[in-house]
């Protein structure tokens, strides 16, 4: 029996630069097993960059990234495959495959994962079940282009949980971006529900404070490449540090305020 005393995901002094632009500045982060960790921050602060380090889609310039006690930032693409098969990713633009039907999209990770010991019928059955969980049981034969934004997001969520055994971690990149408040609320509830039903560790990147408050067990705020807030949603809401306070309350930074002059 393997002990689980270490965090599922760990960042140790991770620095990431794109050219001269410093995006992550010696980030330390330990993601607790079975909990939802929400990373908030303004657009362009490196939240998605941080998420992509977890699956090895980006490599840090300095520092270490660990998954389940294994250092992964030094692994080759081939060596990363077993890691990636334990983590699923809900992309900001959903990244559904246009050439496939909704059911094929949901079944795809299982079809291509050699660790999944299911035949085609069982995979199709599980994919249908996942679509049922997100309320899209009748949409299996449609193409992603025929769906609304909210429906596509739900298909992406269904694809993220459609693995047997279930994924250890689900990464959500702006899961409510571009959705109206009602659909946004539905997706938030769905994420919380999936978290409770499937018991996976979640890392959610968002600037939607409602999602952070309702779906997160822990909230961190990224600002200028560093975490400037860390705590429960309620604790972060109480922080008086100006950047955190303004972000949480939705108040513009002084330098962002533009006055219209004729």
């Amino acid at each position: 029996m393997v002990g689980h005393d270490h965090p599922v995901i760990e960042f140790r002094g991770v620095t990431k630069r794109f050219g001269r632009q410093l995006v992550l500045d010696e980030i330390d982060l330990a993601v607790e097993r079975g909990k939802s960790t929400v990373i908030i921050g303004r657009s362009g602060t490196g939240k998605s960059v941080l998420l992509k380090h977890i699956v090895g889609l980006l490599k840090p310039n300095r520092g270490e990234v660990w998954f389940e006690g294994q250092r992964i930032d030094t692994l080759s693409e081939r060596a990363l495959v077993p890691i990636r098969r334990q983590i699923t990713f809900v992309f900001q633009l959903n990244a559904l495959f246009d050439s496939m039907t909704v059911l094929e999209n949901v079944a795809f990770p299982m079809m291509e994962n050699s660790d999944v010991r299911l035949d085609r019928e069982e995979i199709a059955g599980l994919a249908r079940h996942c679509l049922e969980l997100v309320g899209l049981a009748k949409f299996g034969s449609k193409r992603p282009a025929e769906l609304s934004g909210g429906e596509r997001k739900r298909v992406a969520l269904a694809r993220a949980i459609a693995l047997e055994p279930p994924p250890k971690v689900i990464l959500y990149d702006e899961p409510t971006a571009g959705l109206d408040p009602q659909r946004s609320d539905a997706i938030t509830k769905l994420i919380r529900e999936l978290q409770e039903k499937v018991h996976v560790t979640g890392v959610i990147v968002t600037h939607d404070m409602k999602l952070a408050a309702e779906a997160g067990d822990r909230v961190l705020m990224l600002y200028n490449g560093r975490f400037v807030a860390d705590g429960s949603p309620e604790e972060v809401r109480q922080i008086k540090e100006p950047h955190v306070h303004r972000f949480v309350e939705g108040i513009a930074e002084p330098e962002d305020v533009v006055t219209y002059t004729t």
Partner: peptide
């Protein structure tokens, strides 16, 4: 597929 992150999605699925 590239600009809509489908290629990255493939990589993220191993």
């Amino acid at each position: 597929m590239n600009v809509t992150e489908q290629l990255v999605a493939l990589r993220s699925m191993g």
